[in-house]
Design a protein around this nucleic acid. Structure first.
Lengths: 76, 76
DNA sequence: GTGTGACTAATAGTCCGTC
DNA sequence: AGACGGACTATTAGTCACA
């Protein structure tokens, strides 16, 4: 049968995707921050779900990670 | 050949999707606002790209419209 | 290289209206 | 039904020093 939806909050899905994609590319939080044009500690805050990121920063992070924005909101 | 990327800003893609999906469902801005638990005037602001929506509200809007969140960030 | 608390500036989001 | 404005509060954006 179909599997249980599981319902992870979207901020967590986002956080996990950012961390996973960053790791896959061998980037540090600092390196990604520079690519995305945001501050070093801000990446960490997002990965820990401490900020409720806006669509504008979702777009910038997606570009820095080289993926389409919807990818960051997609559970895997 | 592959088509031109076109690069519509993500906030505009989001705005267009919200408006289109809302219309398809025959909902007024007020009705959608109530379903999503946000304020009446806020839906209008989003559709006019006047606000930089947060991921939390993307999630709520997606739920209210009955679509997966990534759908709202996808160009069509 | 990352987590965390503290902090200011900016803006997300609400609520009251009018057109 | 929806655009738009002003005033307001809550929260995010973004930075820093330090663990």
């Amino acid at each position: 049968m179909a599997r249980k939806p599981k319902e992870t909050p979207l901020v967590e899905v986002f956080a996990q995707n950012v961390r996973r994609l960053r790791m896959e590319r061998g980037l540090s939080q600092e390196a990604l921050a520079e690519l995305a044009g945001v501050h070093r500690t801000y990446i960490g805050m997002l990965e820990r779900c401490e900020k409720n990121v806006t669509i504008y920063n979702i777009e910038r992070l997606a570009a820095a990670l080289g993926v389409a924005p919807p990818v960051l909101l997609t559970s895997r």
